[in-house]
Simulated scan of single mutants.
Amino acid sequence: MDLLEEYRRATLFFEAGDPAGAARLLEPIVVAEPDNASVRQLLARAYFQSAQLGRAEEQLRALVDRDPSDHYAHHVLGRTLERQGRQSEALTHLRIAAAMHADHRDYAAALERVESKVNPR
C-alpha cells in the first residue's frame, strides 16, 4: 500500500464531504505510521465530522499527549467533549487552546459558548 497516495485519497474524501470514507482510508495509515501527527489529526477530524466522537477523542488525546502545545488538537478535543455533553472537561481544553492562540475567533467563540453552559448567569 502506498501510504502517501492513500493519505491523498483520504484528504480528497474528507474535502468532498465524506469523512467516514476518509476515516476508513486513514485508519490503516495511522496503524502503519502511529507517530504521524498529520495523519492522526485528519483521522480525528474525520471522526469528529462523522460523529464518531469516542474515536475522535481517542485520536485527539493521543495528539495532545504527544504534543501538549498543539493548540488545534486541544480545541478540537474540547469541541468533541462539548458535543458529548462533557462541558467541564471541554472547558479545560478550550481554555488551553484559547490561551495559546488568543487571536483565533473560533477558539474564543467555543470557549465563550462552553463557559456559558458551565457557569450560566
Rank of each mutant, 00 (worst) to 15 (best):
L3V: 05
L3S: 09
L4R: 14
E5Y: 08
E5G: 07
E5R: 14
E5T: 11
E6V: 13
R8A: 12
R8W: 11
R8G: 13
A10K: 06
L12F: 07
F13V: 05
F13R: 14
F14E: 14
F14S: 13
F14K: 10
A16H: 11
G17K: 00
G17A: 00
D18L: 00
D18S: 00
A20T: 02
G21P: 08
G21V: 00
A22R: 13
A22K: 12
A22D: 09
A23W: 06
A23K: 03
R24H: 08
R24S: 11
R24Q: 14
R24N: 13
L26F: 07
P28W: 06
P28C: 04
P28E: 03
I29C: 04
I29E: 10
I29G: 03
V30R: 04
V31W: 01
V31T: 09
V31C: 04
A32K: 04
E33V: 10
E33M: 08
E33Q: 12
P34W: 00
D35K: 07
N36C: 08
Q41N: 13
L42R: 09
L42M: 10
A44N: 00
A44Q: 06
A44W: 05
A44K: 02
A44L: 05
F48I: 02
F48N: 01
Q49L: 12
S50F: 09
S50W: 11
S50V: 08
A51L: 12
Q52K: 11
G54L: 12
A56R: 08
A56K: 02
A56D: 02
E57R: 13
Q59G: 03
Q59E: 13
Q59K: 10
A62L: 07
V64C: 00
V64I: 01
D65Q: 11
D65L: 04
R66E: 07
R66I: 00
D67S: 01
P68I: 02
P68A: 01
P68F: 02
P68S: 02
S69E: 10
Y72A: 14
Y72F: 15
A73Y: 09
A73P: 03
H74V: 02
H74K: 04
H74M: 00
H75N: 15
L77F: 10
T80D: 05
L81E: 06
L81F: 01
R83K: 08
R83C: 01
R83L: 04
Q84L: 10
G85H: 11
G85F: 15
R86M: 10
R86W: 06
R86V: 09
R86L: 14
Q87A: 13
Q87W: 08
S88V: 09
E89F: 03
E89D: 14
A90L: 10
A90T: 05
L91Q: 01
L91T: 00
H93W: 04
H93A: 05
H93C: 06
L94I: 15
R95H: 10
A97K: 09
A97M: 12
A98S: 15
A98M: 12
A99C: 02
A99Y: 03
A102V: 02
A102S: 05
D103Y: 07
R105V: 03
Y107E: 04
Y107I: 03
A109T: 09
L111T: 04
E112S: 01
R113W: 05
R113V: 07
R113Y: 08
V114D: 11
S116T: 14
S116Y: 10
S116F: 07
V118W: 13
V118R: 14
R121A: 12
R121G: 07
